[in-house]
Simulated assay, not measured.
Amino acid sequence: MEDTTNQPPTADASLYNGQPTDTGPSCPSARLTSCTPSISKNKGWVSVENVPTPNKQWFVLRVSYGRILKAKTLVEAKGMVYYIPLRYKEVRKQGKKRIITKPLLPSLIFVHASAEQVETLLHNIKIVANESRALLSYYFDHTIHLQDNPNRNPPLTIQDEVMNNFICLTSIKNPHIIPVTSNSIQFKLGDNVVVTEGEFKGVHGRVARIAGQQRVIVELFDECLVATAYVPREAMKKYE
């Protein structure tokens, strides 16, 4: 993602249809309901709100290496709702604090659309002479198989309430929010909890220890896990 060094320290950590999003510490507009996000202004920022939309769901699409901005431009031009989580980092240049942003998951883009819309999008992408792979492709769900073809997996889709929780976490402006792998978690994922205090209030996940710190892990699917910064035990409660 581009260097946003001219932005103030409140630069956001996500892109929602190309706009910065600000759900606030308790994520009031990323409600855990079965619904479709839309964009609305809130105190000068853009927040995630929800209205029901039939026949649409969140698709996970792979982006070929180093081409996340091109993918963003293409999906945006098609008028499709998408989400790209960003990670922001504070750096100092010539003694001044600056903010730079990078994609949190540079090989993925999340698109909210109907199956027909996504199929049309992918079929219209052509591989040019100097490229070996298409810009976008399906991320397949390897846990299930197609009923009419047991040798194939369907495209991976994310339930609205799970995606809303993921957006809630990755929209928080904290440089210690990090992607993790199961190998980096020092013990088996523990209790299901909801954070009750602090900037991560409202985030649902499972307790784990990473780099010597107690954190809450949000799992979008098997290979996509994101960790909060340190969360004290008194700031969470078990969630069934």
Rank of each mutant, 00 (worst) to 15 (best):
T157F: 12
Q57G: 08
G18M: 01
L86Y: 14
A211L: 14
L169Q: 04
T4M: 07
V218T: 01
P8F: 00
A134N: 13
I84V: 15
L169C: 03
I68D: 10
T101H: 14
K238N: 08
W58M: 04
V51L: 10
F221L: 00
S26N: 14
C224N: 13
H123Y: 07
P232A: 11
R233L: 02
A13I: 03
K102A: 06
N164D: 11
L32C: 05
Y138V: 01
W45K: 08
Y82V: 04
I99F: 09
L32A: 13
G18H: 03
D222F: 03
K43N: 15
H142G: 08
Q19S: 12
Q214H: 14
N55R: 11
I109S: 15
A77I: 04
L220E: 14
K89R: 11
S107H: 07
R92E: 15
L122C: 03
H145T: 15
N17W: 12
V60Y: 07
P9T: 10
V81F: 13
T143M: 03
K93T: 08
Q94L: 13
L104T: 02
P232R: 13
Q214V: 02
I99Y: 11
S132W: 11
R67Y: 12
D191L: 02
P8H: 00
V91A: 13
F59T: 10
V60C: 13
A235L: 04
A208F: 02
A129N: 08
F187G: 04
F166M: 06
T196E: 15
L61Q: 06
A13F: 15
V75R: 06
R215K: 13
K78V: 01
E240T: 14
E49M: 01
G18Y: 00
L135C: 05
P154D: 15
E131H: 14
K188W: 10
R62M: 06
L220D: 12
K188F: 06
T36P: 03
C35R: 08
G190S: 05
P150C: 02
K201A: 10
P37N: 04
H123M: 13
N151S: 07
Y239I: 02
L225Y: 07
D3T: 04
I167D: 06
V162W: 05
T21W: 04
H176K: 03
R152I: 02
K72T: 11
V180H: 08
N6I: 00
I210W: 13
E90Y: 11
T5V: 09
T33L: 10
K126D: 07
K41C: 05
C27S: 10
V162K: 12
K201S: 09
A129C: 09
R206Q: 03
Y83H: 12
T21D: 12
L105W: 12
N124V: 01
N55P: 00
F166H: 15
